[in-house]
Every structure is written in C-alpha cells, then in structure tokens.
Design a protein around this nucleic acid. Structure first.
Lengths: 163, 163
DNA sequence: TTCTTTGCAAATCGTTTGCAGCATG
DNA sequence: CATGCTGCAAACGATTTGCAAAGAA
C-alpha cells in the first residue's frame, strides 16, 4: 500500500476528498503488520476519533481493495482480514485464536517463482498460509485452560485440529 | 477422506447411525475434485434425494471436518468450500467466477517441506492458493461481455484485479 | 423402545446498502 | 455551492441452532 501522501494525491486526482476519516484509516494501515479486520481497525481508531463509524471503515477498506492498495483475505474465522502488503508472501495463522502474522523471511516460495500462466489460468497472485498453533495457544492448551481465544464466529474453523 | 465403508464403521463404532442422508453426502464427496460448497452438494443430491435438507448437508459436512476427514476453506467469495483431499497441495482459484481446481502436479511446494515448527508455531498444515483468471473467464473478458460468473456475495472479491 | 438424526423455522452476525445531512474543495 | 462522504438504520444472506417428529439399532 502506498503512503497517505500518495493516496491523498490519488484521491484528489480523481475528484475525491481527503476526509479525516479516510486519512485516519490510511494512517492506521500504514505500518500495520497485524492483518486486522474492519472491527479491529474500528476499535483502534474509535479511541482518537469517537465519531467514526464502522460503516465508514468498511467503505474506506473496500475502496482501497478496489484500488489494488490492500489485500483482503478470509481465514475462515468469519471475519475478513486486510493486509497492506500486497506482494505474495507466506503467513502464519493460529487455528485457535486466529492471530495472523507474516512468516519469517525465507519461508515460502520466492516471489520470482510466481508463474504467469498455469493450466490456462492467467495467474495474478499467490498466497501461502501455514496453519498451526501459536506459542500462546500452545501454552494455554498445555495448561488445559481455555485461555482467551480471539473471536470465532459460531463454531467455525479452517479445518484441522490436533497437537 | 476415507471411503464410505470406513466411515460407516467409524460412525457405528461411536454409537452413531449410517443414515441414507449421511451416506449420500459421503458418496458425493468421495471422488469429488470440484471443491464444492454446501449449496453445490445440496443441489447435486436433491435430484436423487428430494427430501434432503440443506441443514442436514451442513451437519454432515461439519462433522466430517471435526473428524479431520474434510478440509474447509474460504476463498473470499462468501461461501465455504470443502475438499476431501486433506493433504497439503496447491489450488487454482478464479478471481472472476470463483471456480477452484487443484493445481497441476509439480506446482507448489513438495509436501515434505512442511515444517513442524515455525516462529514458535506448531505447524499443522499449509495451503497454497494461486489466484487468477480461468480460461473461460479470460475468454469472456476478451469478448467484453459479462459472461456468467458464478455466485458472488454482494461485491466481495479476494483482493486483486487486472489482466 | 431408545437415542440419534433429520429438517423446518427462526436466530445469528459480519458485511453491505439506502439515504439524508454534512463538510471538503 | 456542488458534489462526494459520513454514518445511522435497515437489509442481506450464508451458516448455525432449537426443537419436535422420524427412523436406525
């Protein structure tokens, strides 16, 4: 994702307005590595901008996705996650708390191996997701307590279990 | 996923019943490579079993996932897809019609490269998804017509565009 | 018969949309 | 001052759940 300076130029160039709400969402995303959901960002921003609405957060996120500035992905926890890093890279996803983090450098296939075409498909991008249990959840499961897993819509999971 | 013979044994062993509905869903999945949604399976089965309900399809799919027989995944089209192939492998996903197919053999990282641990995470499985445009959609886009893209909840996409 | 499963109808809940008032350029 | 943006409230829709009737074992 480009920085707010450039986005401001872009939005003005197409007759749009650089409203405080838009800029706030842009800034919140700028160096974010937490792969937040719309609700995450809303909660974070509400503190300094109490009048902000969740609807607006969704509007701004969706337009960023349309502009190709933001990647939107579903890990199966019932919430859409967003990532300002639009280059292909690997991610680590906890099956229990649904935390998402970038995999350490060197993990996953190098970006240069992304083919242009595969089985007749024009390939645009690739995602690699490693599912497992994060250190906190491993600890919590070891103790046997329930810990405090993050949101989980009804009983959804991404399909695997065990330890 | 194991075949219906084995699943029948399993379900009976734990005091369950091999109902026609369950067996029908198992059979439908047995050699399926289309990565269907619950609705897909329901539509397919309704023809030969008109009394089957969508609720039951969900019940059966969810228990298969709990048993570790079925992988459940979200491609961002607003529908949960299911895959009886639970081994790590790469998939091709069309950004326009949301068709999912297995990548040709040799594409993606070999299964043996799945690490046990990564950044403190206990790794259980990995998914590799290649996003792009399938031959049909490339053709449709070339013609400039709208073609007939498969389901798409409101205006969701998985994040990328262009050709 | 007993205990599981089915399937209808209703509830959930993240996300999207309609629209009236507001604020940016 | 005109148009684009915000945000409330309502709509949406895939999936889940409560529960009474049905059917395996």
């Amino acid at each position: 994702m480009r920085d707010s300076e450039q986005l401001m130029a872009r939005v003005r160039a197409q007759g749009g307005k650089a409203t405080p709400q838009r800029v706030a969402v842009w800034r919140a995303l700028e160096h974010d590595q937490t792969h937040p959901t719309a609700e995450d960002l809303y909660a974070r921003l509400k503190v300094t901008m109490p009048t902000l609405s969740l609807t607006t957060v969704y509007h701004v996120l969706n337009e960023l996705v349309e502009w190709g500035e933001l990647r939107r992905f579903d890990i199966g926890d019932g919430h859409i996650h967003f990532d300002p890093d639009t280059a292909p890279h690997a991610e680590l996803i906890c099956l229990r708390c649904h935390r998402v983090m970038d995999a350490p450098a060197g993990v996953g296939m190098p970006a240069e191996t992304l083919p242009n075409e595969l089985a007749g498909y024009r390939i645009i991008t690739r995602t690699e997701q490693y599912f497992g249990y994060c250190p906190d959840c491993r600890q919590a499961m070891r103790i046997g307590s329930q810990g405090r897993p993050r949101s989980a819509l009804h009983g959804r999971s991404t399909g695997d279990a065990g330890d």
